[in-house]
Design a protein around this nucleic acid. Structure first.
Lengths: 240, 240
DNA sequence: ACCTGAACACCGTTCAAGT
DNA sequence: ACCTGAACACCGTTCAAGT
């Protein structure tokens, strides 16, 4: 019952562990590594996911990580896989278009949990089992609706891309920048628009606030998904 | 008519300049810097855009770059702006929906020229003058068609995101990975799919090739843009 | 105006060695 | 099985100094 890592600590630094905020610095393990990396990416951006940085967060030397993970790429891949682990394949009832919508919704929901690591999802979508399951379902829906292999593939890919881009490109969610300078960037954009001649750029000026911020997050995702589903519907209708 | 930089070269390395492939290593200047950085990103990915790396490409010390550019962020911003410089605002004739399509096409065409730097575009879209012009036009079209400020803003943003994602996510265009390992990654994906039970994943198996490669690039972009335009059309029709 | 030298605080990774 | 020490080749950036 002795608290882990209280014994046998070399007398180097004051403590070495949890000196970063929000870091309880738990037992080192592959899972703990991936979890911490995902958290880090969400809080400070993907660039903050550094072997050395994570090592000090765990109170350990950088090389310790190489026991649990082959190299940084493998860590990144594991993060991508972990994102899809939260994926739930929706139940198969309702209109086929509703089911397509449900698939995109579940994709968006999974990605929203780790906005800082969304870019890691694409390369793993054909490898992660839950993602494979959802892909199979979606492709089946599209194929049954009459789309060709090429069309269904393109539409399914677009579904993932849409979900990714909604999360990544959400205004007000620049994940990699801490509050002080994030506000400065938004300010810079609005300022750049504000100096424009009002007679030449009436619409841009009118939409500046709507473009740089996002009052209702759920309706933002809703309308993004609506656009995709509406596109699929229209393309399907145009096939006759 | 003496060739530039042939005089007064310190006797350090053999030559120091153009030792990287494809590098004529021209006169150092802000424009040359940005051009080279864009090329680098297209050939080897955005990570290859490093101050020190670029410096050696120009045959110069890293600190020399800081005269032409405040820091790396400013270089990245300049790259984003340069992408939009190739943007042509399409002529204003035809159906409003055709004009919306033309706007997306021109966006895609600009982004396709620098696939490695597409991610730098989003933060500059409200700051780059050509992008402002296209945004104004697009927002005007959508507003005139009856969409609200919020709707028009979301749709216009989605247009940019769609263009970005089409270029970024194009199968067979993993920009950051040189040929040897790129083929290996595609192979890994297809292998992962191939080992799946054929009775449970018929569609995924049937679509594996279509998902991992892109035979006809122009039709790929065409159908991606079609989906967006069809979505806008359907959303517009649903407003009555 | 334009560039260098030296220095600092980072980064990923390998390899041999410790327990 | 799990971690460390030392080393290597990178990275962005600052500051004082050169021409």
């Amino acid at each position: 019952m002795v608290s882990a890592s209280s014994t046998k600590r070399p007398n180097l630094k004051p403590l070495g562990a949890a000196n970063r905020r929000s870091g309880p610095a738990p037992e080192l393990s592959r899972d703990a590594l991936v979890d911490h990396a995902l958290d880090l990416a969400d809080r400070e951006g993907l660039d903050a996911v550094a072997i050395r940085r994570i090592a000090t967060d765990f109170g350990v030397t950088p090389m310790a990580l190489y026991w649990h993970v082959k190299n940084k790429d493998e860590l990144l891949d594991a993060m991508g896989d972990r994102i899809f682990d939260a994926l739930t394949v929706p139940s198969a009832d309702g209109d086929w278009l509703d089911q397509v919508r449900a698939a995109v919704v579940s994709l968006v929901d999974a990605l929203r949990r780790h906005p800082g690591s969304v870019d890691l999802a694409m390369p793993r979508v054909l490898i992660s089992p839950p993602a494979q399951a959802l892909a199979e379902r979606t492709l089946g829906l599209l194929r049954d609706a009459g789309f060709s292999v090429r069309e269904a593939s393109d539409l399914a890919r677009q579904a993932l891309l849409t979900a990714m881009i909604l999360v990544t490109g959400r205004p007000g969610a620049e994940v990699d920048t801490p509050e002080p300078e994030r506000a400065a960037k938004v300010q810079a954009k609005r300022a750049a628009v504000a100096t424009l001649p009002a007679d030449l750029f009436p619409n841009l000026i009118a939409c500046a606030d709507a473009l740089t911020d996002c009052d209702d997050v759920d309706q933002y995702y809703g309308s993004g998904i609506d656009l995709y589903v509406a596109g699929v519907k229209e393309l399907h209708a145009a096939r006759h």
